[in-house]
Design a binder for these strands. Structure first.
Lengths: 153, 153
DNA sequence: TTTAAAATCTACTAAATCTGTAGACTAACA
DNA sequence: TGTTAGTCTACAGATTTAGTAGATTTTAAA
């Protein structure tokens, strides 16, 4: 299960993607609209900024905004910032490889063989899903729901 | 990342699968051979037993053994016992559905749409990989490594 | 029927991680 | 130079992880 931190971060990114190129957004507004504790959100946005996904401006008229277009930010990049590596075991991580402490021979570890496949399957999805893709899917889902409601009336 | 508990549990299952139908195996032997803290292993094996994956016999000549053939035990079943549901968010879990506390409309939640795909991709792998499959892959990997060693001599 | 072996149950505990909070500080704009 | 808004430092409660200790129950064999 992903942490609340990751959920909040993804919500924030989707929120900012919706308002791409409309100037900096206030943490306060984001926290209020998405029901995220403000102080907690601060630390999350800061991490996303330090990773290059977000940019910010201080002072009056300041706030946070996407560092690049929603087409160029993937869900995978964001998850790695907030949750850490995608890999279920460190020895199959592409971005943060580490030897498993309890593992003997890495080449013949059965757990590793399976988890490598799992990691690749997860990466295949999240590294090929951009914020723009997410917005599009939300739009389709909202349309589909609207039709269901219209039909049921 | 999966917990040590899950890793230990999978190691234990692979160990027991290797010795399927050779009588009960002692916790002590398993703990020693796989370098798992014995007391911790006890709780893990008990959980696997309570879920039906393992069976046990008490007293002299007792120990743990697979409750069914290695062909009929999947990695997914085992992971769910030790780690909980595969789903990254509770609202897409097939085996332990729960509404996300912070989620408004489930049908149009962008995070949910992506995480549903992730869950399905993970399940596709681990629910179709049996302990027998793992043993087979380990065998192949050992063979491959042996050939590399032979060649390099 | 006693004894020894082995799983099971109850009850802790230390450390790490998660989910925040408080308050001072810095930068930018008017 | 005052106000706004992000940034930094530090802490704290709750939960989860990774164990440990010791008593109890069950079973097989002597």
């Amino acid at each position: 299960m992903i942490s609340k931190k990751t959920k909040y971060g993804l919500k924030a990114l989707i929120y900012l993607a919706r308002q791409y190129e409309q100037g900096p957004i206030l943490i306060s507004d984001l926290a209020r609209d998405e029901n995220i504790p403000k102080k907690f959100l601060e630390t999350i946005l800061l991490a996303l900024k330090n990773s290059g996904i977000l940019q910010s401006r201080k002072g009056k008229g300041g706030g946070y905004y996407l560092g690049r277009s929603p087409r160029q930010i993937t869900v995978g990049q964001a998850i790695r910032v907030m949750e850490g590596p995608l890999a279920p075991v460190p020895c199959v991580s592409e971005t943060a490889y580490a030897k498993c402490t309890e593992c003997g021979n890495e080449n013949t570890c059965g757990i590793r063989l399976v988890m490598k496949d799992v990691r690749d399957a997860i990466a295949q999805i999240v590294d090929n899903t951009t914020l723009a893709d997410v917005l599009e899917r939300i739009g389709q889902a909202e349309l589909a729901e609207k039709n269901v409601v219209d039909f049921s009336i």
